[in-house]
Amino acid sequence: MKIMNRRKFLKKAILFIPAVGVLRRLVGDAHGKATAEGYDPANHLYGMGIDIDKCIGCGLCIDACKNENNVPKEPFFCRTWVERYVIKKDGSVVVESIETGKEKGRQKTNEADILRSFFVPKLCNQCENPPCVQVCPVGATFATEDGVVLVDSKRCIGCRYCIQACPYGARYLHPETRTADKCTFCYHRIVKGLLPACVEVCPTQARIFGDLKSMASRLVRFKRTKRIHVLKPHLNTEPKVYYASLDGEVR
């Protein structure tokens, strides 16, 4: 009896040993420096400010983001998008996501009916307390030390629990990789001192990017001088995307 089990065990062991080598090779090259030279994530904490009074709804940010980050061009996959709010005199609210390209959605509401109207850029809020990270079963999404929530596209199993858990609709399943994808604040740019693509192209500086750990950053100045609100504060996600002049109708 026991001998049989031992034999089984040995057989298994023999099968396993070549597998070890294969697996090790699959995992590939060893540890290396994580980011650009001289960059220490411990010294940074990134956030974004959005000045709604300045957004003109031109949609350049959406195009730039798709361009920079290999986001599918179709309007169903967005790392960032811009919503148009039209609050009418009868109290009804019409919201639409503006389309980029030639048909940049001209507002259709009769102007005489408008009480107020404005644009709201949206993107991943890079929450301090991210529900998407909490629910990922394999730990493929995580927050970096400098405050950006990333997705490991080599390990994401595509269960889409994070998409369900995100209150802001900021995640989508990338149709090519079949993994969850989202805004990274253009992590590959910011660690090299560049601005995120959407901030770079924003013609009115409605988007302000900066480092919360540096008192002299534009973002900290923005937070000091504006009245700040975040999206869905009651969910306690503690977003790091700060809105100035945010209307109560925005959800």
């Binding site: 309007p75 169903f76 996959f77 967005c78 998008w81 919503e83 019409v94 919201v95 639409e96 996501s97 949206k122 889409r160 998409i163 369900q164 802001y168 609709g169 900021a170 995640r171 989508y172 399943l173």
Partner: peptide, 13 residues
């Protein structure tokens, strides 16, 4: 109908 976030068109589960 109405407004949904652009990423919400597809039902994921």
């Amino acid at each position: 109908t109405g407004f949904i976030y652009p990423n919400e068109v597809e039902i994921h589960w």
